[in-house]
Nucleic acid binder design. Sequence first.
DNA 1: TTCCGACAGTGGGGTCGCAAT
DNA 2: ATTGCGACCCCACTATCGGAA
Length: 538
Amino acid sequence: MAKRAAIAELLRATARDDAGAPEAAADDVEIVVAYLAGELRQRRTGLGYAALRDLPPPAAGPTLTVAGVDAAFEKMAGLAGPGSAAARAQAAADLFGAATAREQRFLAGLVAGELRQGALDSVVLDALAAAAEVDAEAVRRAVMLRGATGPVARAVLAAVAAGQAPAPALAGFRLEVGRPVRPMLAQSAPDVPAALEKLGVAGAGDGQGPAPAGACLDVKLDGIRIQVHRRGDDVRVFTRSLDDITDRVPEIVAAVRALPVGEAVLDGEALALDEDGTPRPFQETAARSATRAANGAANDAAAVEAASADPPSATAEAELAAQLELVPFFFDVLHADGADLLDAPLRERLKVLERVAPGRTVRRLVTADAAAAQAFFDGAVAERQEGVVVKDLDAPYAAGRRGAGWVKVKPRHTLDLVVLAVEWGSGRRQGWLSNIHLGAQDPEGGFVMLGKTFKGMTDEMLEWQTRRFLELETGRERHVVHLRPEQVVEIAFDGLQRSPRYPGGLALRFARVLRYRDDKTAAEADTIETVRTLAGGG
DNA sequence: TTCCGACAGTGGGGTCGCAAT
DNA sequence: ATTGCGACCCCACTATCGGAA
């Protein structure tokens, strides 16, 4: 509350046009909003955590301006080519050298993406509403539709500064074909019954309460989220973070151009498939989506031959990745031929989706029967899909929110592993041993590390494990404490992936702690053989 | 008054491209 | 060629706080 008021006051002060230059004040508003939310306006500056290791001593007094700092980052973002690293380092040294100690801390937080002020996008959004004295929901909606807070803040506060009502400025932000909106996100549930419960779908057979309303189950594909905008032949493809990847995915552009709709905004997932339609591992989809597609060489046998010749190099891997095709599957539609559908219930949007993207939709089941829903989930998993998303048929498209309208369910695996080492935490975990290194037993002796995790620990567990692991300490290396391999921990994870980093060539995906097992010794922990079997056939 | 939803924080694995070595 | 770094793809989970009930 106090935080929101303080930020609101700062926004009002920034928007006040003291210098008789309304555009400059409006520019400052955009920059300040970004900084408060912990972001730079520049998407990439080339400056990161490592660049903060050797900072010049701070300046004695404050001289930096908002516009000046933004200009400095803009300059760094523009640097490229030989010598750019040195030039960037110099620009960074100039900027930080002109900053006071407090300003240095703030700028470092921005650069590293670790502001740790307990206020990011959402709190800033509330503060903006307070500063302009408008409804926070209306501000949120405008921000989601615009895909960014800065321009909304600029328009609203400029109106206020000019003595006008801010509401019309807010209403001016609409879904626009060609400009991405923040995608709707899903909550998660441990299993299908829990997901149905969360949506308030009673499930069949309980014989009491209101008649089951039914839910929609989508197969959850393990690829990358795409939001596709089409106006005539102009097609643009955006990622979940609203990055424009159109140039990298010509096959998706072509697929969307072939759809029977002139103007549309579609939400979906793209992934690489085998000839029989089985999904390729996520890593291959990710590699492909980070690479430019091979230039018409999708079936160039010579190129494949060259790329697979040993020894395999990073370049060859990238060439292989470029040969893969990404296939789009859509599960929602936000706009179709002049009609905005964000506020329409899912059941309406799905009707439109079937019309505008026939044959390009994810597999789906609408049911009120809990057993049928379970069977659908089991079938999806058997097909090696990631799981399902259970959806409320009456829910609108809640752009930018992890709304209760969508609930994902994925299968969960567990292993009993041994803690090999542990790292000192940071931030609110400072002073606690936090991130644990996990190993499976090697029948030939010793342990094979499969990854790390810091997830699933309560404060109580952190306290306990800090004491316990200090007892098992055998030595230290910087922030890593090595241990006698005696403590067994039950780990949940989503699956195993190929690893270039770990000695077994395997790593856990999304590992988290379920509980420490004091009823098992390290000799009773799972072996690397068990893990390999799991990775091989599931 | 208690309960609960949304957010912030704390990091995980992998991949690419780029510049420096 | 190899290495280190930044940026981005996929994320899970707990503590906290304000507003809903």
